[in-house]
Amino acid sequence: MTASAPGAPGEGGRPGARDIPVWDPLVRLIHWSVALAVLLNATVLDPEGRPHEVAGYAVAGLVAVRLAWGLIGPGPARFATFPPNPAAALRHLRHWRAGAGTVHLSHNPLGALMVYNLWLTLLALVVTGVMMGTIRFFGIQWVEEAHEMAFDWLMISVALHVGGVVIDTLRTGVPLVRAMVTGRKRVPAGARVR
């Protein structure tokens, strides 16, 4: 929503590049708030303290809204735009290695799998975290272990997630992190867009 027409040719500095709005404010706010809350819980907040639980609940609320938005939100935010499709993800991986880069306005098929994995892992963290607080599961070993395992898996996933973002940015020339900040993907001239 800049002063000039969205998607106008030449906008965004580079000649021939197009700036296409993809991520709405809700998607962007949720992404960076979740990343911040996870970072806080993983580093500075005492796992046994109240703030750890509050941050965890915030993550739960944010992810829940994002999942609802996946049903009723605008095109790029919708599940229907990036359905989980392992076959397409494998194809995408092969194309990656072959060097053919198609620009996806929503998540690419491989990124889509990662996104579902991240959401499920976050929910698992919250569920096991809340379970630890209930009388029924208080002090039960496997719940605590599940919480820790989910956290380890989240860290591995985030590392792969950020790695994938970097590789895709280099492959397609679309600065993806900038898109998650400004909401707009800058697509180089002549790129195949889907």
Binding site: L29, A58, G61, L62, V65, T134
Partner: peptide, 28 residues
């Protein structure tokens, strides 16, 4: 749109907190 989005997310964080607490309270 932006202020509505911020409002929604604040409420969602609160709702999740209350619901989680209700679950725990319910048992205790």
């Amino acid at each position: 749109a932006l202020s509505l989005a911020v409002l929604i997310l604040l409420q969602a964080a609160c709702a999740a907190f209350f619901l989680g607490d209700v679950l725990i309270d319910f048992e205790a």
